[in-house]
């Protein structure tokens, strides 16, 4: 350190009423405080950047490659791959969107009363019931999805009951199933499995938002002669909106890419875009650039839908 700098430091210490040594120690601590957050953040954030952000670039570059399995794929910037995959598989893309939209709507319809009941009516059973909502998570979801094959089997009591109540002809009339006495391997069974698998994702954020609502607001609504329904619509729903937006997104986004339900509970007529991607990337399809192009479409599509939806719902607090 040069002489003028030392003099400056001494003057600074005198002004602060401390010694030079104390001033230096203080600066060291402050410097350590300033770097500490970056030390804490670095390992995890670098991991996410390298294995989540960088791969986004990898998939884009893979999606414009050409070649085949035997000779390998080379980067040739063939953007026409996107046109190819759209014309070949747009049916499956649209079907995936339909299934995941239906799944999200049904999940919301089921999640609202469930979250409402647990948040406001369950009292001291609250935590236990929330634990039961997530408990199914702890048995492999593929096994639980297979259980629906047993439940919805042609000669099972569920289908018998649906027959007696004339629900099966109604479903096949709507085109959700293909015959009057069977529901497996149809859009109905696929969406049923999806709703079952994603419902906890819808319930959790809605419950969290509802739990924060002061129950006295409900009493106030009743004091002002609002019916239970009006109180829900004018008080509960708007206050729970951030949770509803979060819950529907956490349902819709994973549902678009899901293919496990479509394969396990569906049939040849319920093939979704996830299955196509799976087959192209690691299966019998064997055209990795096509699989990559479909992934990019899915990625950009969900991002656009998500941003538009958040803007429309007017909330940024989704987590």
């Amino acid at each position: 350190m040069s002489a003028p700098a030392l003099a400056d430091e001494a003057a600074e210490a005198m002004a602060a009423g401390t010694t030079v040594a104390e001033l230096r120690a203080d600066k060291r601590v402050r410097r350590r405080r300033a770097t500490l957050p970056y030390v804490l953040l670095a390992p995890g954030i670098i991991w996410l950047v390298v294995f989540f952000i960088v791969p986004m670039w990898s998939i884009v570059s893979t999606s414009v490659e050409t070649g085949d399995m035997d000779t390998g794929f080379v980067l040739s910037w063939r953007w026409a791959n996107f046109g190819d995959v759209w014309s070949q598989w747009h049916q499956q893309i649209i079907r995936s969107l339909e299934y995941s939209l239906m799944c999200t709507v049904f999940c919301l319809v089921l999640a609202l009363p469930l979250a409402y009941f647990i948040a406001f009516k369950a009292g001291r059973w609250k935590n236990l019931l929330m634990a039961l909502v997530v408990a199914p998570f702890f048995t492999s979801y593929l096994i639980r999805t297979l259980a629906w094959k047993t439940i919805l089997a042609d000669d099972g009591w569920v289908v018998h009951a649906m027959n007696t109540l004339h629900i099966t002809p109604l479903l096949s009339g709507m085109g959700w199933t293909y015959s009057d006495n069977s529901v497996l391997q149809t859009p109905f069974s696929v969406v049923c499995g999806m709703v079952y698998n994603f419902l906890p994702f819808t319930v959790l954020p809605i419950y969290t938002a509802m739990e924060k609502i002061d129950p006295r607001l409900h009493e106030a609504g009743q004091d002002l002669y609002a019916s239970a329904w009006a109180t829900f619509r004018k008080v509960t729903f708007p206050l729970a909106l951030p949770g509803i937006v979060g819950g529907t997104l956490l349902t819709f986004i994973p549902a678009v890419g899901d293919y496990t339900n479509a394969v396990m509970l569906g049939g040849p007529k319920t093939k979704v875009i996830g299955t196509v991607i799976e087959q192209q990337m690691i299966g019998t399809g064997g055209n990795i650039p096509y699989g990559a192009a479909l992934s990019v479409l899915l990625m950009v599509g969900t991002l656009v839908i998500t941003l538009a939806y958040i803007k429309k719902a007017g909330t940024e607090e989704i987590v």
Partner: peptide, 28 residues
């Protein structure tokens, strides 16, 4: 930046995360 890097993996469809990582591993 930190918040969005943390949020995005929860908001991306699993198949997208799987295929992007596969592309990275295959390319590198």
């Amino acid at each position: 930046f930190v918040n969005s890097v943390l949020f995005l993996p929860m908001a991306a469809p699993e198949i997208v995360m799987g295929t992007t990582l596969l592309a990275l591993f295959l390319n590198t």
